[in-house]
Simulated assay, not measured.
Amino acid sequence: MPVNQNDPRVKRTRQLLIQSFMELLEQKKNIYSISVQDITDRATVNRATFYAHFEDKYAFLECWMREKFQRKLEETLPNCSITNMSSLRTLILTVFDFLARTRQYMTRTPANSQYEPLFEIAMQKELYGLLFRWLSEESSASASQEIVETTALVISWGILGTAVQWSRSSQSRTKEAMVRDVLEVVAAGLAPVM
Results as ranks from 00 to 15, higher is better:
Q165R: 12
A163H: 06
I147L: 15
Q165G: 14
Q171I: 13
S156K: 04
L160I: 03
T162H: 04
E138T: 12
Q145R: 08
I159V: 12
V154P: 01
A143D: 15
I155T: 11
R168S: 07
G158T: 04
S136N: 13
R173G: 08
T151H: 01
S139Y: 03
R173W: 05
L135Q: 04
E138W: 00
E149H: 09
S167E: 09
T150C: 03
W166N: 09
S136W: 01
W166H: 13
L135K: 06
E138R: 11
L160A: 02
V148G: 02
S169Q: 10
S140F: 12
G161E: 10
A163K: 03
G161I: 09
E146C: 06
S142F: 01
S136R: 08
T151N: 02
W166E: 09
I159N: 03
L135E: 04
Q171G: 08
E138G: 15
I155F: 08
I159E: 03
V164K: 14
E138P: 01
Q145Y: 00
L160F: 01
S170E: 15
S172M: 09
R168Q: 15
E149R: 13
S167R: 05
I147P: 06
A143V: 07
S169T: 07
A163W: 12
L135V: 02
E138S: 14
E137Q: 14
L160M: 05
V164M: 09
T150R: 05
I159H: 01
E146I: 08
S140L: 10
S142N: 00
I155Y: 07
T151I: 04
I155A: 10
Q165E: 14
S140Y: 12
S136G: 11
S139D: 06
T162F: 03
G158V: 00
S169G: 15
S136I: 01
Q165S: 11
